Simulated scan of single mutants.
Amino acid sequence: MSRQQKRIQRESEIVAATLLLLEEKSFLDLRMSDVAQAAECSMGAIYSHFSSKEDLLLGCAYFLTRQKIQVLHRILDADLVSLEKMVMISLCMWQINQDRPEHFALSQLAMNPSVWQRASSNRSNAMNELGDYIDSQLKTLVRQALSENGFEKVSDQSVAELMMGLWGLSSGLYQIKESGFGVFNADFREDDGVDLHLANIQRYLAGWNLDSAVSRARLSQLAEAVSNYTTLEAGA
């Protein structure tokens, strides 16, 4: 194994150790010394890979984002029409967050501008590249969905509006569910908000005259198939 390969492996081990620690405590309570102990390496080794706690946070977010890209690729390759793929991505991201809420909290924290300012430029650039890749893949999919459903002139603005609206709806609803309001709200307690999520997707698609392309019954079928796509591999 080359020196570079060993460095990549050690960095992956540090990230993996951090994610295990986060099953028991929040990132805000985590100390770099805790990470060093869990990863069985020195503090010097930790700081040779991650310049700060914020840099480590962004490194963990990078790892989790690459895992989500695995799911994205599975959906893009699936035997579904483009609009169904759009919905499936939204449903799968909801389920991934539901399965590992501590990872959701970490990813939300990692999006704070102050984290990016304190992280290394290499780390923030790498995250930007992943973001640009996901954005490109999603916009291509949305453009296909609109074309397949009778939209003759598909502008960049309409693509951005449909894409950001759908995922903003899903992400926003999930954040409400995870908040103190969600804990005490009956709409979320019974089934973790899944029915409410599906109903909101249906109403949103209706606003674009796309609800006939994906009926409520079909939405339920897609929701039942989520587990076929969300199994994450350890080495992203």
Results as ranks from 00 to 15, higher is better:
R143V: 00
P101Q: 12
C60L: 05
L222M: 09
M88G: 00
A17D: 07
F104S: 04
I134M: 05
A234S: 13
M1F: 05
Y174L: 04
I134H: 05
S158Q: 09
T18S: 11
W116N: 11
S51N: 12
M163T: 14
Q202N: 13
A225E: 08
G172I: 08
C60M: 04
E148L: 00
V87N: 01
S82A: 12
M163Q: 14
L58S: 12
R123Q: 15
G59T: 03
S107C: 14
I69V: 13
R218D: 01
S82Q: 03
R10A: 15
V226I: 09
W94C: 03
L64S: 01
D211H: 07
I8V: 11
L130G: 03
M164C: 07
A206T: 04
L28N: 12
S121Y: 14
L219W: 00
L28G: 08
Q5N: 08
I96Q: 05
E224R: 15
S90P: 00
N200Q: 15
M43I: 02
R218H: 06
M43V: 02
K53A: 11
K139V: 00
L20G: 05
Q70I: 11
G131E: 08
S82P: 00
D99P: 06
G131V: 02
A17N: 06
D77K: 14
C41M: 01
C60D: 04
H197L: 15
Q4P: 09
N128W: 15
D132H: 08
L166I: 05
V35L: 07
Y174H: 09
Q98A: 08
